[in-house]
Simulated assay, not measured.
Amino acid sequence: MSILIDKNTRLIVQGITGRDGSFHASKMKAYGTKVVGGTSPGKAGENVDGIPVFNTVKDAVKETGANTSVIFVPAPFAKDAMMEAADADIKLIVCITEGVPTLDVVTALRFIKEKGACLIGPNCPGLISPDKSLVGIMPTMIFRQGGTGVISRSGTLTYEVVYNLTANGMGQSSAVGVGGDPVVGLYYQELLQMFENDPETDSIALIGEIGGDAEERAAAYIKEHITKPVAVFIAGQSAPPGKQMGHAGAIISSGAGTAAGKIAAFEDAGVPVAKEPSEIPALLKRKR
C-alpha cells in the first residue's frame, strides 16, 4: 500500500500554464500519475501536454472528479490557490511554492482544516508513492517500491536518504516532503501515524533539522505510539545559534531547537540517530 496518494489519485495542477507548472505536469503525467486537469484563469479550453485547462478548481473538479491538487502559482497568490482548492472539495492539497508569507499559510491552513482537507507544504518537494503516483517535483529515478516510509523537512536530504535506501535494496512505500517553513500542513506526528497504520510499511526514515520543537514532539510520539523500526537524521548539527540554515524554520533561537536537543530526544525514545544520511539503511536493518 502507500499513504495519501496511489493509482486512484486524480490530480489537478494549479498554475499549469506557467513555466514550472507545465514542466512538472508533464513529468508527473509521464510517471503515470493521473493528471486529469489544470487551472489557469482565462485560459479554459487550452491544454498542456494533452491535459485540459480550466479557469477554476471547481470547474476542474466538476469535469474530472479530481481529488488532489498541486500548486505552482507565485507566492503572492498561493494563499488564494490553497483556499480555492479546499473550497472546491479537494481533499489533499500540495503546495510546492516557496516564499509564501507565514500569516498567509496560517489563514489558509485554518480554512483547509475547516473544509476537512489536508495540506502538504508549502515550500516542499511534494510526495511520491513509487510506481503508483507522483505529486510534486521529486526525481523519480532514485525511488523504488518497497516498505520504508520517508518523512522529511529537507528536499535535498530526502533524495540522498532515498538514494541510499534504494542502493541497499530497501524500496519505499511513500516519501513525503513536509516543507521547511515555520508553518506547514501535515507534519511528523500525522504522517508517523499513517505509516504505522499502513500494513505494507515496515520501517520509517525521518529526516529532521534544527529549529523548532517538531522533532522533539515526534520523538515523544514514536516512544508512545510507533511499533515499527525508525531511524533518524538531523541536519544542521554544526549550525551556530541565531544563524538560519537553508529553511525559514531552521534557526536556533534562545537555545531551543538545537541538533543536540533533538538527538537526545530521539535517543531517549530508543530511536537511533545517523551521523550521516548514508547510515540510515544500516540502522533500519539493525532495528528489524
Rank of each mutant, 00 (worst) to 15 (best):
L191F: 12
S203W: 04
L4R: 00
M141V: 14
E216C: 12
A86K: 01
S154Y: 00
L283P: 05
N168D: 05
G242V: 08
R144G: 05
Y188C: 06
G179H: 12
G136H: 10
N197E: 15
T17H: 07
V73G: 04
L119Y: 13
Q189F: 11
V48L: 03
I51C: 02
R153S: 10
E190N: 10
K285F: 08
M83H: 09
G246Q: 06
G50P: 05
I128L: 08
R288W: 15
G242M: 14
S173A: 12
C95S: 15
M138L: 14
K115W: 04
M1I: 14
A60Q: 04
A219E: 05
L4I: 05
R288E: 15
K79P: 03
A269S: 05
I12C: 00
I71Q: 01
T17G: 07
T156K: 00
I207P: 01
L206M: 15
I252V: 14
V73Q: 04
I263L: 12
T68L: 00
G236C: 08
L119K: 06
N55P: 01
I251W: 11
Q189E: 15
N164Y: 10
A78V: 04
E63H: 03
V183S: 02
K62T: 13
A214N: 15
P182D: 04
V36K: 05
G42S: 04
S278R: 07
Q145F: 04
R19T: 15
A108R: 03
K243I: 14
P281V: 10
A85D: 09
V48H: 02
S253P: 00
V36E: 08
D20L: 15
D89T: 02
I280Y: 11
P277W: 07
V61H: 12
I96N: 04
A282W: 11
V183H: 09
V271P: 08
G185Y: 03
G177H: 04
L283M: 12
G121Q: 11
P41W: 02
L165C: 10
T156V: 06
N168S: 07
Y187N: 11
I12Y: 04
K29L: 13
R153P: 02
C95L: 10
K79Y: 01
G116K: 09
I112V: 14
L192T: 00
S40I: 10
Y163P: 03
P130C: 12
I207G: 04
S152E: 02
A78C: 07
Q193R: 15
S152G: 01
M1C: 14
G270W: 06
R153V: 11
M245W: 01
I5V: 15
Q193L: 13
I210Q: 00
P125K: 02
K91W: 11
I51H: 06
E276S: 13
A219M: 13
V35G: 06
V105W: 08
F54R: 05
L283S: 06
E279V: 06
D89E: 12
L109M: 09
P229K: 12
P229F: 14
K58L: 13
E98S: 12
G211L: 08
S133Y: 10
A44I: 05
V271D: 08
T156R: 01
D131W: 12
F72L: 13
K115N: 14
T39R: 03
